[in-house]
């Protein structure tokens, strides 16, 4: 028996259509390059590179969906996975909006807030990039000024410092274990952590979740602000 489509079903349907359209447009770029130049890709160069990268990005992509989609909700996940820059922009942006609007993950209100946040963030990035390309000639020397390089080299550190304060303040009991663990990890295996930050994020998330569950079961979190 066919059941009536719910609001969430519609979100998935729209998200999937958007994603399929997005992927088609993405793939049309190299295909157009092939069609216009008449030069096909070199299969001997393509397949080894594609397989090497897929070994990294196939498990990486699955882990990203599993880790990030609960924080984003339905529509924002589809939108963020088309527009990219997840860990360094979309996720912190959605979490910041959630914190400001005091919505609960998994709630219909949070679905709205996360979608608005990721849409606004995407539009901002797209407009900044377009403006940058239009103004490329005057902007390039300015943005490449040696004195400004450290500012943009460490923009993500600045982002997580500022956002970290908010989350640490609101959840003091949840911080200790993951923070001590990741600092120790950074000191003991610096090369691995810096070179494999995506894996480190998953390890950090797992350690943090296990610690939180233990604290929750021991009723330590009973009075914690969410």
């Amino acid at each position: 028996m066919a059941r009536e489509r719910t609001y969430v079903d519609n979100l998935h349907r729209t998200g999937r259509i958007f994603m399929i359209l997005g992927f088609s447009i993405m793939i049309s770029v190299p295909v157009t390059m092939w069609a216009v130049t008449g030069v096909a890709p070199d299969t001997e160069m393509f397949f080894p590179a594609f397989l090497t990268l897929s070994l990294l990005y196939l498990p990486g992509g699955i882990i990203e969906v599993i880790t990030y989609s609960p924080m984003l909700g339905t529509s924002a996940t589809y939108l963020a996975f088309i527009t990219g820059n997840l860990s360094n922009l979309k996720i912190p942006c959605a979490m910041n909006a959630r914190e400001l609007c005091k919505t609960t993950i998994g709630s219909p209100e949070n679905e709205v807030v996360a979608t608005l946040a990721v849409s606004a963030s995407t539009i901002t990035t797209t407009l900044v990039m377009t403006f940058g390309v239009i103004m490329l000639i005057p902007l390039t020397p300015l943005l490449e000024l040696p004195v400004l390089q450290p500012a943009f080299n460490w923009v993500v550190s600045a982002l997580f410092g500022a956002l970290g304060y908010k989350y640490f303040r609101n959840n003091p009991k949840l911080i200790a274990v993951p923070l001590v663990f990741m600092i120790a990890f950074g000191l003991l295996a610096p090369g691995f952590l810096v070179g494999n930050l995506a894996i480190a994020i998953v390890i950090g998330a797992l350690v943090s979740t296990i610690a939180a569950k233990i604290l929750f079961d021991k009723h330590v979190l009973d009075k914690e602000a969410s």
Binding site: I105, G106, G164, N170, P178, L179, G186, I203, G204, T209
Partner: peptide
């Protein structure tokens, strides 16, 4: 999910 995100922030501190 607060715990997951705090784990993510901690990873950046570790980094």
């Amino acid at each position: 999910f607060d715990a997951v995100f705090i784990g993510m922030i901690s990873a950046y501190v570790g980094d």
